[in-house]
Amino acid sequence: MSDLLQVSSLGVRFSGLTALDDVSFTLREGEVRAVIGPNGAGKTTLFNAISGYVTPTSGAVLLQGRDLAGQSPHAIAEHGVRRTFQNGGLFPALTVLENVMTGLHAQTPGSFLDIVLGRRHAIEAEQAARAQAHDLLKLMSMDHMADHRAGDLSGGQQRIVEIVRTVASDPPVLLLDEPAVGLSPVARDQMLEIIRRLAGEKGVGILLIEHAVELVMSVADRILVMAAGKRIADGTVPEIREDRAVLEAYLGYA
């Protein structure tokens, strides 16, 4: 697998406070990499620095060789690093299908006026986007919910729809901020399956923050462990399980 994302010596300082200190790692195509650590470890700052919501004070963020550090969130998303948030952001009055289609908007030629005026190229593009949205929902076992209002879905279902919408434009890298928080065991299992499908079937490189450590152990290929803005461990699941400092600090046993 080739490297999609390379984070090198990334640092972030706020008014003299070091929030990230010399953090480096890579994310490969089709890989699920988890970031764990206690509150205040720097996990969210790391996501913000990668996705453009915080400007790094040092280091580089390379997407397939392109340096993204310091660019706007919109520009970074256009380059192919997409992100979900804990609170979501669906349009509650729109259907599930319509929400997913908003994720395809940038790829769909023609304006809303073109569609209203019946211009053929715009209508054909709209039909193609609708078919693609259905295909994505089928991949995530959500096509039966296509015509439901997003606002009527459960929290777990809304989170799944948000992920489907986020990957509609085929981004190479997806950042998931606590995708399983608050989910029932059944919904959590479904979320894990979706993450595996995105990595395994679509080749998306997935970076996720998650506090449920056993969930992380069941889905991640590699794990980055952080504390006080620094990387304290980085490795495969077996390597992290056997790291005594990690076991004592985060997993609750030695």
Results as ranks from 00 to 15, higher is better:
1 M>P: 13
1 M>A: 11
3 D>S: 15
4 L>S: 04
5 L>Q: 14
6 Q>C: 11
8 S>Q: 12
9 S>A: 09
9 S>K: 12
11 G>L: 02
11 G>C: 04
13 R>L: 11
13 R>W: 08
14 F>H: 10
17 L>M: 14
17 L>H: 14
20 L>E: 07
21 D>G: 06
23 V>M: 07
23 V>E: 06
23 V>G: 11
27 L>Y: 00
28 R>M: 07
28 R>Y: 04
33 R>S: 08
33 R>L: 13
35 V>P: 02
35 V>F: 07
39 N>R: 12
43 K>P: 03
52 G>F: 00
52 G>T: 09
56 P>N: 12
59 G>V: 08
60 A>Q: 11
62 L>I: 11
65 G>A: 06
67 D>Q: 11
67 D>C: 05
70 G>I: 12
74 H>W: 12
82 R>S: 06
83 R>I: 02
84 T>N: 04
86 Q>A: 03
91 F>W: 09
95 T>K: 13
95 T>D: 07
95 T>V: 01
95 T>G: 11
101 M>Q: 11
101 M>D: 00
102 T>Y: 04
108 T>Y: 02
109 P>K: 08
113 L>H: 02
120 R>W: 04
120 R>A: 04
129 A>D: 00
129 A>C: 01
129 A>K: 03
133 A>I: 08
135 D>E: 14
137 L>D: 08
138 K>P: 07
138 K>C: 08
141 S>P: 10
142 M>P: 04
143 D>I: 07
144 H>L: 04
148 H>F: 15
148 H>C: 14
156 G>M: 05
157 Q>I: 05
159 R>P: 01
165 R>V: 03
170 D>T: 14
172 P>I: 05
174 L>T: 15
175 L>W: 02
177 D>V: 00
185 P>W: 12
196 R>N: 15
197 R>I: 14
206 I>M: 08
206 I>R: 15
207 L>P: 04
208 L>Q: 09
210 E>G: 06
211 H>T: 14
211 H>K: 15
215 L>D: 13
216 V>P: 10
216 V>L: 11
217 M>G: 11
220 A>F: 05
224 L>F: 07
229 G>P: 03
237 V>R: 15
249 A>W: 01
253 Y>E: 14
